[in-house]
Amino acid sequence: MIGISNLQYKLGGKSILEDINLEIPDGEFVAIIGPNGAGKSTLIKLILGLYDLQEGEIIIDGITQTAWLKANSFGYLPQHEEFDRSFPATALDIALMGLAGRIPLAARLKASHRTEAMAALEQTGVAHHAKDLIGKLSGGEFQRVLLARAIVGGSTYLILDEPEASLDRPSVESFFALLKNLNEAGHTIITISHDLNILSEYCSFLVCLNRRLHCHNHTELVTSEIIHKTFGDSVRIIEKDY
């Protein structure tokens, strides 16, 4: 379980997140929704430990985030992975990255690690691309390679930053179906999403964020009024879904 209490975050004097108190129960498929600039990416980067906490506390599995991160890592899929298209890495190299942190400094990757990484690529449906250079993969294929990297380390938590952004419509459906399978297999999934239609189908828990927390509850308990309050008047399409 991830518990966040009294979290505040400022950047250049501007408040990005205020007064966040949130509990994410194990086994949920969580969607963080909110308008642009709501602080969604900042929130997950704070959970991941990529940004330093300024105020407040994050407790993971009963221990502080700092202590947890010393022995564990999150499965993370960033919105946009900065990399050189000509970088000489294969899909298998990228999947192995999810295991490399478990191996001591200066030690080599072994055949057993490759087998594990291949199994993860198999699970996300891109094992046949294992030897392909990442620059040659389509957006959807690369996304599945990144998902393999996120799950291969065995982390129970999968954190995704708007995975649908680089996918076309049919790929979004199949990608979320894949996430649903992983969720059913025991992963707690936390994803930022803009696609309100898909959320009602796949997500079990909604976090509505607009600098402050507007709600965090099971999807069926979140009303359209709350969504409106989170987004302001810019969203009108969600009544039929919620």
Binding site: L48, L50, S73, F74, Y76, P78, E81, E82, F83, F87, A89, D93, I94, M97, G98, A100, G101, I103, L105, A106, A107, R108, L109, R149, G153
Partner: peptide, 16 residues
């Protein structure tokens, strides 16, 4: 191994 992933993406290397 470390140099390979540092060169690929230092921030993601930190995450993992």
């Amino acid at each position: 191994k470390e140099l390979f992933y540092l060169t690929y993406n230092a921030e993601m290397a930190k995450v993992f």
